[in-house]
């Protein structure tokens, strides 16, 4: 059990390090002029960070498929809300 425990703790610290690196990258990227791509880069990094937190810290990796489905469901419905609202605002 101890080796398992150590393994889990080591994984948590690894994820934490990755999150900090991504934080530095995203702040740095904001200073590079990319035009419309700035927001894309920022959001991609945010999605990666959020996925790491959800997958490891929130134990999605060892959850039942139905729980993963609910987690994705919330995101999917948010996409519906944003997309169809934007369909109006952008097409006026």
């Amino acid at each position: 059990m101890d080796s398992h425990a150590d393994h889990a703790v080591r994984r948590y610290f690894g994820i934490f390090a990755a999150l900090l690196v991504l934080l530095v990258i995203t702040v740095g990227a904001a200073y590079v002029h990319l035009g419309a791509a700035n927001i894309v880069v920022a959001l991609v990094i945010a999605v990666v960070k959020a996925s790491l937190v959800a997958w490891v810290f929130m134990h999605l990796r060892s959850s039942t498929p139905i729980v993963i489905l609910f987690a994705l469901g919330g995101v999917f419905w948010l996409v519906i809300l944003i997309l169809l609202t934007a369909a109006d605002f952008l097409a006026r």
Binding site: V27, A30, H33, N38, A42, L43, I45, A46, K49, A50
Partner: peptide, 13 residues
């Protein structure tokens, strides 16, 4: 994690 780039990081260049 989403609020930070959306609010603070709109193209600082």
């Amino acid at each position: 994690i989403f609020l930070f780039p959306l609010l603070y990081l709109i193209d600082r260049s």
